[in-house]
Computed example of a mutant assay.
Amino acid sequence: MTRVLVVEDDDDLRAAVGTDLCENGFTVDEAPDVAAAAAALGERAYACVVFDRMLPDGDSIGFVRQRREAGWTVPVLFLTGRADVADRVAGFEHGADDYLGKPFSVAELCARVAVLCRRPAPRPPVLRVGDLTLDTVRHEASRGGAPLALGAREFSVLEFLMARAGTAVSRTDLIEHCWDVSTDPMSNVVDVVVRRIRRKLGPPELVHAVRGRGYRVGLPG
């Protein structure tokens, strides 16, 4: 399932873009402004986000820039009427992966989104959430400077969650990426491993259960 978030304040255009993407095989969520986009990004993982720039609560370029500075790697396409050279350059300088001006071709939009969704997300060699550090090259973990003794499965699950920090990750996604294909998706293996991780991390809790969705790594509150 390739899930795309479309952020556009024009209701008709947002619905039309969502419909076009759905007809081309994408699963689409919609948001009318930056605040709704931030909420959606906190709840789900997306393969790509399509942003209009001028939204009711501000220019989305600032939101994308802040997320990039915090390590966010989800591909972003700006779909906007602000499409002169200076605007496009600003978009790329502040976190855009692609930039498409309005009016636009539906076929071109879908093709560009498809390319971004196929792009492997870069993952930094060292992941950090609060005082928790995971070195994916050396396969070492620490919290508050103290080393953590994590098993291979625990490390894999924690790495997957930390790479998506702030986003709820389903048990199904964890099983697909951290276990082999023979694992029963209805089993409780994820919950067992997460309990071990939580115990080893200690307080304050960084791995949170998200009702009906799975687990999310993030600071309390």
Rank of each mutant, 00 (worst) to 15 (best):
N24W: 09
F160H: 14
E23H: 06
D180E: 12
D9F: 03
P203N: 12
L206D: 11
R53D: 09
A165W: 00
V85G: 00
N24G: 01
K102A: 03
V217I: 13
L161W: 09
T183P: 05
L158G: 08
D11Q: 06
R213Q: 13
P56R: 13
P124L: 05
D98C: 01
D98I: 01
L41H: 02
R143M: 05
Y46G: 02
E140Q: 14
L148N: 12
V210Y: 04
F104L: 14
Y99A: 06
L201T: 06
V34Q: 13
M54E: 08
V207S: 08
D52P: 04
M186D: 14
D184H: 06
E93Y: 01
L132I: 03
V181P: 00
M54A: 12
V190M: 04
V115Q: 02
S187D: 13
V28Q: 02
R53I: 13
R128L: 06
R143Q: 06
E140R: 15
T167W: 00
R67C: 05
E8Y: 10
S182C: 08
L77Q: 10
G218F: 04
L109V: 04
D11T: 08
C110P: 00
V192N: 04
R211N: 04
A165Q: 12
L79C: 08
H208G: 09
L132C: 05
L174T: 09
M162V: 14
L5M: 05
A96Y: 02
E154Y: 10
R3N: 06
V34M: 09
E159A: 14
W72N: 12
V192S: 03
K102D: 01
D173G: 04
V7D: 06
A163Q: 15
R68H: 06
A209Q: 08
L174P: 08
H177C: 14
D135S: 11
G221R: 13
T172V: 12
A39Y: 05
N24L: 03
T172R: 14
E43H: 09
A38W: 00
V85L: 14
V217S: 03
L150Q: 10
D12C: 03
W179A: 09
E205A: 15
L206R: 14
R123W: 00
L55S: 02
D184P: 09
L206N: 11
L109R: 04
R82K: 10
A40N: 09
R196L: 11
E140C: 08
V217R: 02
P122F: 00
E69W: 00
V34R: 13
L150E: 10
A168F: 05
M186R: 10
R82T: 01
E205V: 13
V194K: 07
A114E: 01
T183A: 15
A45G: 01
A36M: 08
V181I: 05
S170T: 15
G101H: 11
T27Q: 14
G101R: 11
E108T: 15
P103I: 06
F160T: 07
D191R: 15
S142G: 14
L55Q: 01
G214V: 09
L201V: 06
G62W: 09
Y46M: 02
E154L: 11
R171A: 08
V190P: 04
